[in-house]
Structure formats: structure tokens, C-alpha cells
Design a protein around this nucleic acid. Structure first.
Lengths: 343, 343
DNA sequence: CCGTACTGCCGGAACGTTCCGGCTTTCCGC
DNA sequence: GCGGAAAGCCGGAACGTTCCGGCAGTACGG
């Protein structure tokens, strides 16, 4: 089942068939149609190896994930999202298992690279950016090195403002925040924090922030939550940024005698399936990781195919990934309490 | 930088160069040596696309992960292990993002498939096994369908026995067990349970088992732990199978007034980095997910290359992956208590 | 000294695709 | 009616590898 079979079946040459199917050349609409029909009928699937050989493409994109964050469900979903979309473009996904120690000259066999949450001081990120393949970062790279070819951003700032606004409307005027510590200074983490601090300034609230390692043990997270709650006496809401920490907070707060719902709101910056099912369900920002991965792969394949053009010389292409706020009971004051101006 | 350059540099024909580098044909040792030297000098990397085209190989292996388990760190590590090794064999890793609903005729573009923890009733697993590419399962497939070409097993039974023996030696004679529920009846899950039950029978202990969904909320895990501890009054050890549940148990047990260490031992069937760092550090079975992935990929590529032969007609090749028991303070009775025959 | 077998090496074809250049046919302006 | 342009289609080469068959040269038994 090659393109020659399709061509024969449609009564044209292989060249015409190729042109018709790949959209190039000069082919009349009717012929194009006929060839497409034949291809569909025969169930023709182009041979990736041959195509890549001819186009001198490797046929794969690489994905780099921050090492300490591998345990997080978000990244797994994201990776599958990338795989899904890359595959549609005829590309495979190579998980880049690079040793940070010898990141110097990575022996890459990929056409392009996606870096999710580039960390400013990650040597692998730096090495990849300096390699001679196009790179798409998901979240801005705040570190040194050449600019990537593309950046996929989400408007975390706007979403944080919306979340804070929502909490405010629900009666919380003194929210506290848990963020990743300095080991994970991704654009996302910094945006969350910066936006929070700005909001506090604009609303006359005292910012109460605690940080915790993304790969911290539950114990440590407990401690941090405890510290947060006792640190700010008037605290009436807790926002948890690191993946999964809100779930931990839920029980810790209960154990502390400050259960969520009893004039204490709880929200998460990263949604996960459990948050819908726990008690009470937790308000969370759904980053939609699968789609996120889809978009990242889409952007990279677009750049590789040349269909996506950088707007300005040297400026990376930027795309926006929409995220969603899932409002759930964890951010509603108890029914018997009047929500708006409680306290 | 093609094989022709290498050949020219070594003063031989491309055929000889190819034969020398791929180990085939008839080439004198000296010539082979000379060609290898030239290849190394020039930094020759074979073009995967051309090779795959010629060998009519796709050049990729697929990985299927049980849907509900995606959040677990184990699988991410495993996936990277597969990627690492597959890459060495010149193959890419395709994460199979298959829709269970339309699993009927998966449009695969891979040379082989790895299924980690095949679930007996997973339609995707069934479809993959019926596809016309070799399949390696990690853990035996206990469901219907054709046999896979290869199986990578770990001796979970032996390791469970060792763990139980260790607990026993540390003074625990009535261990309880938390296992995945019926939504995750993998070979591993069943082995853990079966071995535990057999051990109890052999040692005159009453088995106390509770099950929990692998994607359960922390709340639910809490409940299950609580139920387990209250259900068996003489309980002096808790073994947690689902990834991460032991960490949850650690704090739940403390909250219940039965902290680990105070004549109550805790162990996990799946090690994760946090377990080393929490207080007390938790004894766990290290499945060594990265190596696990390596081996799985190695087995599959071996089968694909024909270097691994099934021992008997129709019988899948079987390989053993060694796992390790990490003994930590969570399975030591308090210092002030005499360990062996306490109680 | 011949026939046979084997060793060491090589030329060329093939894998399935894309793309360059060229061929025929049609169309249009003058 | 004729030159030129453009549309529509095609043949053949090329991508880098592997592999089949073959060709010298040597060894050796008879």
C-alpha cells in the first residue's frame, strides 16, 4: 500500500498523487479529489520513514520535563497531549532523558524540542536552547540563553486575579498563598506569586506567602500549611499552587481545627481529578494539561512545517493557551453565613 | 555525514562499511576495525529514517499505560526508562493515547508495543494484543486475548514474602494490607494480595485487607486506613500497596493516635522519593521504575531484532526484573522496646 | 595443474517518498 | 494562425541504508 498504488488506482502518476495528497504542485481540483478518494478507499497511510528520509527530517520531537517534577500528574497528562498531537503531524515523541551533569552537547535526534516549565538555572534547558533545533517553551524562560523559537503561554496572571476576585466576592479578604520554593522558579510559579502580591497591595491586604519544594514530602507540606495558617491570624482563604498540595491542605486544615468551609476558603492553582471528588470539592484552576500538550506540539510542528511565522525577526512566536477556573464548594462560605461582608 | 563518507575515509565500499558497522557480511577483522575507527572519528550517526525505510520498520515502539494510573510517579519514571533504552536501539517512543471507546482497530504506527500493568478487562489492552505487532507486557496479563510475545515480570511474591518476613522479624505478627480495588486488578496487585493471604495462612495470622481505588482522593485513603486499623484490633503493621498511599497512612495513623514507630510498623509496596525523607522514613519495595522501563524496552527491541527467541512455540519470552527492599526506620520498633518478641 | 570451495570485498538495486525539470495541451492576444 | 504563457501532469533522480548476487584471489585435495 504505497502512493504508487493510490496513483495507479486514480489513474495518475505517483508525482501527481504525491502533489495532490501533500497539497503541493499544480493539480486540478477534480484530480485532487479523485486521488483523495482513492487514498481514502485504499486506506493509504504514508510511510513515515520514506517521507522523513526524503525531507531529511528525523520525524520526532523531544520533550523535556523538569526532573524534580516528574511525580506530578500534570506532566504525564501533558506528555500524552504532546504525543497525541505530534502523532497527527506524523512525528513521534521522544522523552528526553538527559543527564543534567553532561548536558553540554546533547546528542539529539529530534527535529524540535518542547520544554515544559523551563527553570532559569536548569543546565539541560540551556543546552537545549543552544542546540540547533527549534525549541518551544511552555511558559516563558526566565533564564539566560538564546530565545526559543516559540512560546506557549497561559494567562496565569489574569486567572490568578480572577481567582482572587472570586475569593474576595465569596467573603475572603485575607488570602494566604503556598508556592513552590526556589528549586522551582518557573514562569508559572513566579507569576502566581507576583500576581498575588500585586493583588494584595492593590487591595490593602497583607501578603502571607509560604514556599515548599514541589517534591516535598507530605509532612513538609503539612508543616508549611500549619505555618501559613498560624502565621496570618486573620487568614480566611488558602491558595495552594504546587500540584497536589491543596489536597494535603484540606486535611491539615481540618486537623488544625480550621476546616475548609467554616469561614476558611481553599483553592488550588492546579486542578487534578481528586479535587472534584474530595469533601468539600476544591475550587481549582484547570490548566487542561492534555490540551496544553496538544497546543505545544501544534505550535512546534507549525514552526517545523514553516506554517507558523515569527512575527518579528528574532522574536519568538507566542501562543495563548486558555485555562479555566473550576468553582467548587471549597470557596463558598457556609450556607448559614452571609457570604459578602462576613467579618 | 553518511556511511559513504565513512567508507571513503576507510578506503572501502559502502557495502563493506555497512557490513562492518552492522556486524553482518564477511569482513576481515582489520578492515572492520579500520571502519569502526573511521566512523568514530567522523562521529558517524546512522540515519534512522533511511535504515527504517530499508528494513521496512517504523522505528518506534508504543507504550500503553492504564488510564486511571496516569497520576502516579511510577509510570512517568517507567516511561522515561523505556524512552532511554528504545532510543539506544534507534527507536522512538510513542505514547499510545488510545481512546478506550474506539479501541477496536487501533491505527498503530509502531513496530511493537509495551503494556505496563495490563488490566484483565481493559479493552485497549485486548485490542493491542490482537494487533499484528509484537507486544511485551510488564506483569502478566490475566485477561483474555492472544498471548504477548514477551513478558517482563518481577518477583513480587518473593519480595512480599521477604517484606512480611522482615516485619515479622521486627516483631509484627499481625500485619494489615491496603491494596488497589477491583478497578485495578493488575498482576502486581493480585500477587501482592495473594502472597499476603498465603503468608497469613502459613503463619496463623488473620488477614486484614482493605482495598482502595488507585486514583482515590486522599480522604478516601484516610478512611480506608482508619477502617483497616480499627478493623483489626491487634494490628501491628500496615502495608500499603497503592503508590503514595503509605505517605497518606503515615499521617493518618498519627492522627489516629497510633503513630508509626510506637509498636506499629508501616511499609510501602512502591517506593517513591518522598518515602526516604519523611518522618520516619518508610520501608518500601523499590521497583526501580527507570530500570524497569529499560528492561521492558530491551526485551521488546530484542524480540524485534530477532536476537531474543521464544523458548517454546507460542510461549512468550519471560524476563525477570529484580526489585529491591529498602529497609528504613518505619519498620523498626522503638529503640526502648525489645524488637523480637515484643507482645 | 585443474576444479572446487571459501574468503574478502564490491556494484547495483531496492525501500517509498518528494521535487526538479520538462512535456503536452489549452488559452489568449494580436 | 501564430508565439508565448500558463495549467496540468509526468519521468526520473535523490534521500541513506541494506542486501543480493557476483567477482577476483587464494587454498587445497586429487
Amino acid at each position: 500500500m504505497t502512493i504508487i498504488d493510490v496513483a495507479r488506482h486514480a489513474g495518475v502518476s505517483k508525482t501527481t498523487a504525491s502533489d495532490a495528497l501533500s497539497g503541493g504542485g499544480r493539480v486540478s481540483p477534480e484530480t485532487r479529489e479523485r486521488i483523495a478518494a482513492a487514498a481514502a478507499l485504499l486506506g493509504y497511510v504514508p510511510n513515515a520513514a520514506a517521507r522523513h528520509l526524503r525531507r531529511s527530517r528525523v520525524g520526532a520531537v523531544g520533550l523535556h520535563v523538569p526532573r524534580q517534577a516528574m511525580g506530578m500528574g500534570f506532566y504525564m497528562e501533558f506528555a500524552f497531549g504532546v504525543a497525541e498531537r505530534a502523532r497527527e503531524a506524523g512525528l513521534d515523541l521522544t522523552l528526553l532523558a538527559l543527564d543534567p551533569a553532561q548536558a553540554g552537547r546533547p546528542r539529539l535526534r529530534v527535529d524540535g524540542v518542547i520544554i515544559i516549565d523551563p527553570l532559569p538555572d536548569d543546565p539541560v534547558t540551556g543546552a537545549l536552547l543552544s542546540a540547533d533545533v527549534p525549541v518551544v517553551t511552555v511558559g516563558r524562560h526566565r533564564g539566560p540563553g538564546p530565545a526559543p523559537a516559540g512560546v506557549l503561554v497561559a494567562d496565569h496572571a489574569a486567572m490568578m486575579n480572577r481567582l482572587l476576585g472570586h475569593l474576595h466576592a465569596a467573603g475572603a479578604s485575607a488570602p494566604g498563598l503556598v508556592v513552590p520554593d526556589d528549586g522551582f522558579r518557573s514562569d508559572w510559579a513566579l507569576l502566581v506569586r507576583e500576581t498575588y502580591e500585586r493583588w494584595c497591595r492593590d487591595h490593602g491586604a497583607t501578603p502571607v506567602v509560604r514556599s515548599v519544594a514541589v517534591d516535598a514530602t507530605p509532612d513538609t507540606v503539612d508543616e508549611v500549611i500549619r505555618d501559613l495558617v498560624t502565621g496570618g491570624p486573620g487568614l480566611d482563604a488558602v491558595i495552594c499552587a504546587p500540584d497536589g498540595s491543596a489536597l494535603r491542605a484540606l486535611s491539615t486544615l481540618k486537623a488544625l481545627g480550621r476546616p475548609v468551609g467554616d469561614r476558611l476558603l481553599l483553592a488550588s492553582c492546579v486542578a487534578s481529578p481528586s479535587m472534584e471528588l474530595c469533601d468539600p470539592p476544591i475550587t481549582a484552576i484547570d490548566l487542561r494539561p492534555r490540551r496544553y500538550g496538544n497546543s505545544a506540539a501544534g505550535l512546534l510542528t507549525g514552526i517545523l512545517a514553516g506554517t507558523v511565522e515569527p512575527e518579528e525577526r528574532g522574536r519568538p512566536v507566542e501562543r495563548l493557551h486558555p485555562v479555566e477556573l473550576l468553582v467548587r464548594p471549597s470557596t463558598a462560605f457556609r450556607a448559614e453565613t452571609a457570604p459578602p461582608r462576613a467579618r
